[in-house]
Every structure is written in structure tokens, then in C-alpha cells.
Design a protein around this nucleic acid. Structure first.
Lengths: 353, 353
DNA sequence: TTGATCACCGAAACCGGTTTCGGTTAGCGT
DNA sequence: ACGCTAACCGAAACCGGTTTCGGTGATCAA
């Protein structure tokens, strides 16, 4: 349908080979001819058929983003921004961005295998890996360049970009400890997700270095949603000795926690402190505005794109690893623990206001 | 790199033509041979090179989603869900989904032209069209199949999927009028966006049929963001005779409105009513929970995909038009106007609680 | 004037598939 | 035994580009 190279060639009285080399700036085509060809090309609106071109040059010039697919859950909020960044970097090279929903089911992994073997894509970006992610195993086995948005248990071998959840949660706990909290709980996401494990580990680290109370029931596993956060909060508030502060695996879960706290007639930030994680824009409108560990997800897409292109260009994936830090955004849900807190068999010394 | 058809053929002692027809189920290849080829194919992990295959069959089997690019603004929240739905429908046909950020600048439109002419894509899905959208003009000129997510001024000629903003805003106004409001304001998004115009028209329609006060300064144009909503609200609250209710072009703007109202020491839903638009999940966590006109965006991606495929298959685009309705989700920001409202020259009769 | 050199372009192979066309073989009836 | 048909597969053209290789004409020095 589009104007083809042959058409352009006959129109100019040249052969296709000559036209091709002219357009690609080969030095064995005279400047005059090159100019003439170029002029005619964009006068007729000629564009090389990409399927033909890529078949010929032997690379698909395309990268695929694997959209996380949790059954039932909605698409994570960072996906859109990430795609925007990715598409920007790729566009600079005139590469294409493909998106595919590929979960971790056997069918999905099989689909991914077919995708890779069909020479459609030169590399893959993968978000939210599981601890032992079959997709990563496949990518390595098939020798397909990729970069992981997040990390897994053994992430030394490949390229990744991540925000340090361990550090962030340790910092959140320390912040609360500094405010005077001694009984801090964690509302955790399902641990099959590596990021959830990291955040939980960071929490535990923070509890240890601050010598806080550690009780098994101060760690609640919950669904990765606001409903999950709400349910977990209710469990925590029902404890005989409830914690005075919650740290949550995500802002969404933290919002659920706020709802549970308000439902008890308590006010978040005064009676119970809550710290979320993500830094979603929306947190500022929560009731009250949500204190959170914000991740710098502005440039994530661009960085991931750059790293993947480097790997495709032959860079050692182990040189393409980048860990960014989250930072505390204080709003209104963190504060010192209430004075009137019920004392129990455990001796608690309040050290701050 | 991947195992090629020729390799498979020589491995089997057949020719490439035979292998190709065997895999594609041609009746002139014996069942026995077909089985043998298929078995060998997936034992060796053979997958047809898609560039070659598509070059040969003459269709790119790929659809492109044009991600809205507003400079400065973030990616709209519906994009991720929409992509998920789109990719689902396309996957059923083994088609690919490309995403590109293409705004309305001259450069971007030029990029789109190149994209289409390069035979990379068989169709386009386009979100958030402007009133006079150069991208749509281009798509029609180049005869490229497309479906618009939203509508434009003259949308009779092509395929689209939209939620009836006009109806929604008229309904929102009527709802407020029924609650007793007579002075209702609209916080509008920039009118170069067709959706903003529709919503404003719907608002005006609602004002008319309910015979409400109409004042020019009850329509505030603002940036399409929470900050914009907040600024517009402050203007409205500063009016000598401020409105008792706001309808907002988006939930995000409505959240800004809530912030402005609370900052005045007023409580949304009691002193001033606010109705948003979109139905973002987050609204339930707003302060107080946001009443909104929710769009049914669950299946939007799938519907858009289906419609586009129909058009590509030759259906008349004008038969592929679908208008869905938004519905009111009452939460806590709507209520009757305050009794103590300052009466002015206009006689106001309160008819409800 | 002639032979060598260089600039420039045409011809053709190739990328990896699909599809048309034609030829071989087997099976069948007579 | 012979011809006919159907079943089955090989050969080759084609999709639209890229790239190698070789040939022509002009230019230059001797």
C-alpha cells in the first residue's frame, strides 16, 4: 500500500540497490544522486518497510515490556510512567516498544518463549519479579537480553534497576523509633514477591538496630491492596497490646490502614502512626495526608531503557545494576506515640515528647 | 540465532516450502508429514521469524496505542488498564501491541506519519483527542484504520468508544439540584480537549433544564490537575456570592477542590458539595470520600481492541461506535446546601432536606 | 593515445518466511 | 499393461528491503 522502494527507484530511473545505499548515506553514491533520491523520497512520502528492513539487517529493533499481570489486582500505578520513559529512550534510536502481559503461569511463560524465539524482540524489561521467577530463568536460558525492574534472590548475574526497599523500611522504622515508638508493626505484602521480602527484611533490620520490641504478630501478611491493608490493620488494632505505629508495604495498603484506624475513632498520626511506601501523588489527598517513603520513579523508565540498550549492545549485564534510594516524605500520619498508651507486662520507657 | 525454517527442513529431509505448508495446515501435505513436522518443530523450539513472516503475508499484525503526552502532566490513570485490555484482545489473535508517545506537535505528527508509512502497524488506537486533532486528520488522509478513545467535533466518520460526558455532567447537576442546590459551579479542564467541552456542555445543559442560576464566573477554566482544581476552587470561594456546589472535570481536580475547601475551614459535603468525574479507585480514601461520576472503564481496552480489529477486517468504521454511560457513585462530598447560606437578590426556595 | 585508477551505479544474492505451479509417484479401473 | 487421477512434495517466485561484487565511463598520468 505504501510507496515502495522499487517504485521510488523506477520513478528515479535507478535501481533499488542504488536507492537503498543513497538513503543510507553510502559514500559510493554521489552527493548529487543522494540529494536527488532523498528529495524524491520525502516528496513521495517513502518510508522503508520495517519488516523488510529488519529482516534484512537481522535485528528486530524492538524491545518488549512485560506488564505485571496479577489476577484480580489492577495494574500497578507506576506502569504508565515507566512506559512513557521507556518509549522516550527507545524513540531516540527509532526502536519500537512492545507491551505484553506475561504472568508467571506456565502458559504465560510459554508465550514468552514463543515471543523470544520468533525474533520479534531484541530485549525485555520485566517488572516486579517473583523470588524465583520462571520468566527470568527462561530469559537466561534463551540468552535474551533483559533488565529487571526490581531484583530477585540471585540478582548478581543480570542487569537490574531497583529502589532499595530494605534501606527504606529500616529508615522508616528508625524514624518512628526516633519519634519514640517502641511497638511498631509491619503490614507486609505476599512474600512470593521479592520486593515484599526486601521490605520486610528492612523492617526487621530496623527493629533490631533500634532494639525495639519484636513480636511475631506484629508482622501481618495481607493482600497487596487497600482492602488487605485494612484487614491487617484491624488484626493489629485488636491485639491485646497493639502497636503504636504501622509501616506498610505500599501506599495503597497504608490507605487501607488509615481507613481501619479512622473506623475505630482513632486519628492516624496522633493515636497510631502510619508510614506508606511508593510516594504516589495521591497520598497528599488522603485523610490525613499520608507520610510515605517515596521512590524516585521519575526516571525509572529512561534508566531501564538505557540499561537494556547497553546490554543489547554487548555490555556485561553485571555492570548494569542501579540501586536508588527512597526518601521520607513527612506529611500528617507520623507523630510521637500517644502518652496514654496502655502499659502492659512489658516495661516501656517513653523517651520523647 | 533462533532455529530457522531451513534448518528444520534439512533436518527433516524436506524443503522449506513443504515445512511451511505443513505447519500452516495445508491440505496437500499428508497428515503423517504434518505431524512429523510439527513434532520436530516444537522439539527444536522452532518459531517462524515474525519479520519474515509478516513481510511475506503482507500485514504487520500489529496495532499501535498512542499514549497521550501532555508536557508536564503525568500519564492519565486509565492508560495502564486500557493497555492491559488491549493487549488481551490482541493476544487472542497473536497480534502485537506497540505503544508510542505521540502528542499533537508538528514533530509528533510527523513521527506518526513515518510510523504508518513504514508498514509497521495495521491500526491505531488514540486516546484523548483534541477538538481538532491533527493526528486524526493524518490517519484519515493516510487511510490508516483507527479507533478513537473519546470523540471529536466531527466524529461521525470514524470509529470511537467513549463515555458520555455530556450526560454525566447533566446528571451530576440534576443530582445536586435535586438536593436543593441552586448555585452550582463547574471547574473545567482546558477546552482544546474535546472531552472538556462535552463535560462543560453537559453542565450547561443541566443548569438550563434545572433552571438554575447561570453566572459567567461559575465556570472556571483550570489546569487539568489537582493544583488546577484547587486554584479554581479558591477563585470560586472568593466570589461575593459563592456557589454551594462544584462539579469538576476530573477526580483529580475534585481532590484539589476538597483541599481548597478544607483549607477554608469548611467541610466538603456539608458546606460545599463536590462531584468529581472518573471514578478513580482512590476517591474512596479522599477526605472526605469523594462523590463522583464513575466511568465503566473496565472493558474499555477490550472494546477498543475489538472495534479496531473489526475496522481492520473491513467493517465500516461508522458501525463501530459505542457510547457508554457514567454513573453516580455517592460517597461523602455531596449533600444538601447549607441552610445558613447567604441569600442574595435571587429568591431561592429550598425544596429538600 | 593508452593503460591504470577512481567514482559511480547496476546486477544479483540474501534475510526467512509464504504461496503458486508443476512434476513424480502411487493407486485405481479397465 | 496402460492411462488417469489424486495425493504429495520440490522448485521457484515473491514480499521489500540491504549489501556485496563487478562493470562501465570518465579522469588522469605517462
Amino acid at each position: 500500500m505504501a510507496v515502495t522502494q522499487r517504485a521510488l527507484a523506477t520513478h528515479l530511473g535507478l535501481t533499488v540497490g542504488t536507492v537503498s545505499r543513497a538513503l543510507n548515506g553510502y559514500p559510493d553514491i554521489s552527493e548529487a544522486t543522494q540529494a536527488r533520491v532523498r528529495e524524491a523520497a520525502d516528496r513521495l512520502g517513502y518510508r522503508a518497510n520495517q519488516n523488510a528492513r529488519r529482516l534484512s539487517i537481522g535485528t528486530p529493533e524492538t524491545v518488549c515490556y512485560l506488564m505485571p499481570r496479577q489476577t484480580g489486582a489492577h495494574v500497578p500505578p507506576f506502569v504508565a510512567e515507566l512506559l512513557a520513559g521507556l518509549s522516550d529512550t527507545l524513540a531516540e534510536r527509532n526502536w519500537d516498544l512492545l507491551v505484553a502481559q506475561v504472568g508467571v503461569s506456565e502458559d504465560d511463560v510459554d508465550t514468552l518463549a514463543k515471543l523470544i524465539r520468533s525474533d520479534r524482540i531484541a530485549g525485555v524489561v520485566l517488572s516486579r519479579p517473583l523470588k524465583h521467577d520462571p520468566r527470568i530463568a527462561l530469559l537466561m536460558e534463551l540468552n535474551c537480553p533483559f533488565v529487571v525492574h526490581g531484583r530477585t534472590a540471585a540478582s548478581d548475574a543480570y542487569a537490574w534497576f531497583d529502589v532499595d526497599g530494605h534501606d527504606a523500611f529500616a529508615a522508616a522504622v528508625t524514624h518512628l523509633a526516633t519519634l519514640g515508638h517502641r511497638r511498631i508493626a509491619m503490614i507486609s505484602a505476599p512474600l512470593e514477591n521479592e520486593f515484599a521480602q526486601q521490605r520486610l527484611d528492612g523492617f526487621r533490620h530496623g527493629v533490631r538496630v533500634n532494639a525495639l520490641e519484636t513480636r511475631a504478630d506484629y508482622v501481618q501478611q495481607a493482600e497487596f491492596s487497600d482492602a488487605g491493608g485494612q484487614a491487617a490493620s484491624e488484626m493489629l488494632l485488636d491485639l491485646p497490646v497493639p502497636p503504636t505505629a504501622f509501616v506498610c508495604a505500599s501506599d495503597e495498603m497504608a490507605l487501607g490502614a488509615l481507613a481501619a484506624i479512622r473506623a475505630r475513632g482513632l486519628v492516624p498520626g496522633r493515636d497510631v502512626s502510619v508510614i506508606g511506601y511508593d510516594g504516589v501523588h495521591f497520598g497528599v489527598h488522603a485523610n490525613p495526608p499520608l507520610t510515605t517513603m517515596a521512590q524516585p520513579q521519575a526516571g525509572a523508565g529512561r534508566r531501564l531503557g538505557d540499561m537494556l540498550l547497553s546490554v543489547i549492545d554487548g555490555a556485561d549485564p553485571r555492570t548494569q545494576q542501579e540501586l536508588q534510594r527512597a526518601h521520607l516524605v513527612r506529611r500528617k500520619t507520623d507523630g510521637p506515640p500517644p502518652k496514654s498508651v496502655a502499659m502492659t507486662d512489658v516495661s516501656v520507657r517513653e523517651e520523647t515528647t
